[in-house]
Amino acid sequence: MSMRQTPLVEIRNLKKYYPITKGLLKRTVNHVKAVDGLDFTIYKGETLGLVGESGCGKSTTGRTILQLLQPTEGEVIYEGKNLVGMKPRELRKLRKNMQMVFQDPYASLDPRLTVGEIIAEPMEIHRLYAGKEKDKRVDELLEVVGLSSYHAKRHPHEFSGGQRQRIGIARALALEPQLIVADEPVSALDVSIQSQVINLLQDLQGQFGLTYLFIAHDLSVVKHISDRIGVMYLGRMVELADKHDLYDTPLHPYTQALLSAVPVPDPLAKRERIVLQGDVPSPANPPQGCTFHPRCQACMEICKTQRPKWTEVDGRYVACHLYE
């Protein structure tokens, strides 16, 4: 565990607020706190899974780390350089080290380009390869992701969802990145195809030494692929731990509830299902103190007033008053 602890990306106090404006003058009356203060590190070569309900800010986190969305506050330190507030020109150069695989394979490929053009585009932007060499590299990449070189001349609409996702992965690999942010890369695919794509991602990780930030809401998928898992709730991270620790002994009450929802493929198994009461509060108006307290089974007086600190407990992190 400790030998691979070279940080690749350090995220410090990352926040992304969206202003809510009102009236003719567009006065800002409030903020939607999509991401509200994240602190974590992505280590080289690992897969960090990010789970949470829809709307908890997982995707926003991925996009803010890549600076596709401008963070409101905080730092994203990539190999010693802070990406936040970096000059656009400088940032564009660094972008080749971090790529993204998108959720919707139907929307993430330009329908007017051929697959070859799509995969070659990042190389053209960074002027990495040209002419014959570029074509060769496109063929290589297609084969790496399990497609064939003759696919290069086709258009995206001729492929199935799983194949398109492979094209998206080939495009992400074209620049030989270190970090790939995978934003729910399999949730739009059939279950049978999901495992193929997951296995492909794992193979590629071994082959190219990639680091993944894997965003998903499917707990079993995340468990399968991740080394460590971060659990998000309402724009904040509530727990971050090694996947075995997390699944065996979840600390945070929210993680416990979340994990109890995973179906167990054994009809006789005794399950203790923790059913959360109520809905996720609005991120524009999160509850005082611990944002989870209105739905928490272990809620104490202090939870209603004080926001729990992000603390380290036995090599894992949790934000809960139970463990302070």
Partner: peptide, 8 residues
Amino acid sequence: EAVKAMGG
């Protein structure tokens, strides 16, 4: 967004 992410 993908093109932005690749640095276009």
